[in-house]
Design a protein around this nucleic acid. Structure first.
Length: 852
DNA sequence: GCGAGAAGCGCG
DNA sequence: AAAGCGCGCTTCTCGC
């Protein structure tokens, strides 16, 4: 077997050449803390001899050492205050390390190893049903995840089955109360208030943990032997057919691919191996791994078998990180299987249950759900699977598909228990729609790219030359002994402080614009050119060594649905969602997005965008059901002009007298009122910051905002209701039912439902269009409130009518309170976009006409 | 030489 | 007490 245990590298180093086995054998005799002079050295566990719960801290603090008892200091009170009545006699207390270190430092790996047998003996003897572990120290004394998963913030609030010296029980990781105490921004006045958002989350964790004790199931831990047992490695084509048939007729089947690279679009991209796991069988077979033994004919037959499985097998196909497998299956076997099969995604489930970043990997979830450390059975070079012997890749592949399915089954219970089944259905409809967008690709015109490369490249060169010649840069080099680097925040800080001698806290553009020395502008010029070039031009240039282009001349940005904590999508490789649009000059980089047939006669490919008009503000109306705001939408009241006028009435110096009849100037002030007063107020901005951004005294803003919430009093009430709900339930939710768990800060609590409502409205429309299974209605891009398509000019009107109807006909009852409107624009490229019209669901006649 | 984190800046 | 939210990418810096 190719499986072996991989030691944590960092741990190795900190062990100073001693093995964990050695340390655990000799315990105190080899522990650096053995002879420390403490009031209570080697403090034994205290409390119940038959505990329900064992509480493990880090190490005794000063108070603890003095009194010979755990958690009795100031930090200990933060925890003890939160223990529900009636539990005192059911608790046992100990620490990961039993001796206080002289300088009260965090215990070292050696000490933790020496002390581990003592804890194991205690646990085996007293048999607690659960362990509440506070801080990272006791957690990682017991479990050994890889370095990516060693932050306690990722673990707190969950539970996992553990085996401590042979006793199986549940472990509840939580932050250490001393950390919570340190994070306090103020002293809570009673038990209904919290010193920080994290403290509220901590209190939720403690409460939830105690609340679960009575109903805990028996912990089950999967051993490495079980995880790797009975995986059939198949090299007989008839047997592959047989097993695919069996698995395909089971209700659920885990599916996993191993490939030689991340994306399928390059000519050398290969599926190396594939594996399936259902209730009756787990098997894996080579596809194009160099170690495969298929004859040419068999290899052809294999494709037919895989295709038949993908298109016809009735099982629910379960993947962990489904977008990856769909992209590969779609590329090699056609995208028809996206909708002909039922696909499930255990990563999406995990995201719904707990969206914390870094907590979605199969390894981590297996530790949480099954106490199984997959890390310990891999041990092979994941990045170079082509070089790994095929039987090893197959075993590895088989374990993964097995755990895709087991994880799905385990998490499905929890999804149902939390009543998230409907939302999961929505989430699963997002995946194929977005994979199809990714596969569609975004065309890039290299002649445009080249012209920008030369333009911004030249500008960068000139800016660098100007800095080289600058007198202050020369003074800098003379004084510091190295050349001034305008891109280095450190160098710019030094320049500002020591050479120019100006007061400045940051080195941002806003600060630099205030500075009178010529070098300030030169730094800004340099940064701008470098930013545009390196972020938006080089990545799509064939001339750049590190571009994200594929052989088809397109970019295929990955639009993810399991990254953003609020249910928005994110985009990477490249991030196509943040290309310049506001800056009049730099927005031209969008012109790089252009189809090669944009000017071809009788084709004239066009970029066609549909943007939900003011969707977030409409979401505020949906969430708050505010009477005044809702009415404004139905009657087209311009609330922003109203509040511009009110702001100017309160602070008459705001709009200069001579501008009061200047239409263009008033438009700009309306824009300010909208974006710096109305919307921020919806989202919880305080007079302090609104005052700063508008330049109107704070006391005047306070007055206007009071009047504002007087008019929109249901918005004020909604803000208050959100608070109440959050502190009662420990999470924030929105009309779609998604959840974001504590800690969530005050303004995040307001913003989160808005972002998620927005995303669910737009993604549902994109999915409905995609489900037509007609490439004409498959969006190419999704940018939060915008869906973009690539169509031949002659088809635009006809197709737009279908798309607009779908976009403004929303299937969610909760959206009906306000009208919904989309704005359509068309362009030869992504910058020269002309607005075609606005289409609202309370007025549109169903027809789209292009005026030439 | 690599990874993590901060600063800075682009979008909705 | 701090003072609308959510991202990804590039560069620099620092520590290993």
């Amino acid at each position: 077997m190719g499986f072996f245990f991989v030691q944590n590298k960092k741990a190795d180093k900190n062990l100073k050449g001693l093995s964990p086995e050695f340390l655990r054998k000799h315990e105190c005799n080899v522990c650096p803390l053995n002879n420390v002079e403490n009031a209570h050295p080697k403090m034994e566990a205290t409390g119940s001899e038959q505990p329900e719960v064992l509480i493990i801290g880090e190490a005794p603090g000063r108070t603890e050492d003095e009194r010979g008892k755990q958690f009795v200091g100031k930090a200990g009170k933060v925890l003890r205050d939160r223990i529900p009545d009636g539990w005192d006699s059911k608790l046992r207390w100990t620490n990961a390390v039993q001796c206080r270190s002289p300088d009260n430092r965090t215990p070292e790996i050696i000490e933790l190893n020496c002390c581990k047998p003592r804890i194991e003996r205690d646990v085996v003897r007293t048999k607690p049903r659960a362990i509440f572990g506070f801080g990272a120290t006791p957690l990682f004394q017991i479990v050994d995840p890889d370095s990516k998963h060693r932050s306690i913030s990722l673990w707190r609030g969950r539970k996992l089955p553990v085996n401590v010296g042979g006793h199986l029980c549940w472990y509840f990781p939580m932050h250490h109360p001393s950390y919570i105490s340190k994070l306090r921004k103020y002293e809570p006045k009673d038990l209904n208030s919290y010193g920080s958002d994290e403290e509220f989350a901590f209190v939720c964790d403690v409460k939830n943990a105690f609340g679960q004790i009575d109903s805990l199931p028996d912990p089950v831990i999967h051993s490495v032997e079980e995880a790797t047992a009975d995986i059939e490695l198949v090299d007989d084509i008839n047997r592959v057919a047989e097993l695919l048939e069996i698995a395909g007729n089971d209700p659920t089947c885990g599916v996993d691919l191993e490939t030689n690279c991340l994306r399928p679009y390059t000519t050398d991209a290969k599926i190396l191996t594939m594996s399936c796991s259902s209730r009756s069988t787990t098997f894996a077979f080579a596809v194009d791994h160099p170690g495969a033994t298929w004859t040419k004919l068999e290899r052809k037959q294999l494709d037919v078998l895989i295709k038949r499985f993908l298109y016809e097998a009735k099982c629910r196909k379960i993947v962990h990180h489904l977008p990856f497998e769909l992209e590969w299956f779609g590329y090699f076997y056609g995208t028809g299987c996206f909708y002909s099969s039922v696909w499930e995604d255990s990563e999406s489930q995990a995201y719904m249950l707990d969206a914390r970043r870094g907590g979605l990997s199969l390894d981590f979830l297996c530790l949480i759900n099954f106490g199984l450390n997959l890390k310990a059975i891999s041990g092979l070079d994941r990045k170079n699977l082509e070089k790994v012997p095929v039987h090893q890749v197959l075993r590895y592949n088989g374990v993964d598909s097995r755990y895709h399915r087991l994880l799905y089954i385990a998490q499905l219970k929890e999804i149902k228990a939390r009543k998230l089944k409907d939302l999961y259905e929505h989430q699963m409809r997002r995946v194929p729609a977005l994979v199809l967008a990714t596969m569609h690709g975004v065309p890039i015109d290299q002649t445009v790219v080249e012209s920008f490369e030369s333009k911004y490249g030249g500008r960068l060169k000139a800016a660098l030359k100007a800095i080289e010649d600058d007198i202050d840069a020369k003074a800098f080099a003379h004084k510091k002994g190295w050349a001034f680097n305008p891109l280095s925040p450190r160098d710019v800080t030094i320049l500002l402080k020591e050479i120019l001698q100006v007061d400045s806290v940051a080195t941002s553009k806003a600060e630099l614009d205030q500075i009178d020395y010529p070098i300030a502008q030169k730094i800004v010029d340099c940064r701008e050119a470098q930013k545009v070039l390196s972020t938006y031009i080089s990545p799509v240039s064939v001339n750049s060594g590190e571009n994200v282009l594929f052989p088809d001349g397109m970019i295929h940005p990955i639009i993810s649905t399991t990254t953003v904590i609020t249910w928005r999508t994110s985009s990477e490789s490249p991030n196509i969602q943040n290309w310049p649009k506001r800056d009049e000059e730099r927005k031209e980089v969008r012109g790089q997005v252009k189809h090669k047939d944009a000017r071809k006669k009788n084709v004239e490919m066009r970029i066609v965008s549909f943007d939900y008009a003011g969707i977030q503000a409409r979401n505020v109306a949906m969430e708050s059901k505010d009477k005044a705001l809702v009415e404004a939408y139905w009657h087209n009241y311009d609330i922003h002009t109203t509040w511009m006028e009110k702001l100017n009435k309160a602070f008459t110096k705001w709009i200069p007298k001579d501008k009061l009849k200047d239409k263009a100037a008033l438009k700009a002030f309306r824009h300010l009122a909208k974006n710096k007063f109305v919307f921020p107020s919806f989202f919880g901005a305080q007079p302090f910051s609104i005052s700063a951004s508008l330049g109107i005294p704070q006391n005047l803003i306070e007055g206007v905002q009071e009047e504002f919430f007087d008019q929109f009093h249901d918005i004020a009430k909604w803000h208050k209701d959100l608070e109440k709900f959050y502190f009662k339930n420990g999470y924030v939710t929105g009309l779609s039912g998604f959840r974001r768990y504590a800690p969530v800060s005050a303004n995040e609590r307001i913003n989160t439902p808005i972002q998620s409502d927005e995303s669910i409205i737009v993604m549902d429309a994109m999915a409905r269009l995609s489900e037509m299974e007609d490439p004409r209605y498959q969006a190419m891009l999704m940018v939060h409130d915008d869906l973009t398509f690539l169509w031949p000019k002659a088809e635009i009107e006809k197709r737009a009518e279908v798309v607009i109807k779908e976009l403004i006909t929303l299937p969610f009852e909760w959206t009906r309170i306000v009208p919904i409107e989309v704005e359509m624009s068309v362009g030869e490229d992504w910058i020269n976009m002309a607005e075609i019209g606005k289409f609202a669901n309370n007025s549109w006649n169903g027809i789209v006409e292009l005026k030439n």
